[in-house]
């Protein structure tokens, strides 16, 4: 799975979660916007974390050297 596909998955999850929040707890426009902000922030945070770790392993400068046991 490449970088783009997983990113798309993250976006999809974010969209589903915001739709879910919109449908399940629809409490007026300002609360919905609040929920949307929370979902987007959470999705962005999680995506950043994943992307950083993924990119760091994309072109390894060092490789795992097993310890002698």
């Amino acid at each position: 799975m490449g970088f783009l596909i997983t990113t798309l998955i993250f976006i999809a999850v974010g969209v589903i979660a915001s739709l879910f929040a919109r449908i399940c707890c629809n409490r007026g426009p300002s609360t919905n916007l609040f929920h949307l902000t929370l979902v987007i922030t959470a999705t962005v945070c999680c995506w950043m974390m994943w992307a950083i770790v993924y990119l760091a392993q994309l072109n390894p400068l060092i490789v795992p050297i097993l310890s002698e046991e």
Partner: peptide, 22 residues
Amino acid sequence: GLIKVRDTYPFGVDPEWHGSRS
């Protein structure tokens, strides 16, 4: 050490790193 033979581990840190010298 080992070499990378496949695509990058898709989610998170590759398990092979654990316990290695590097």
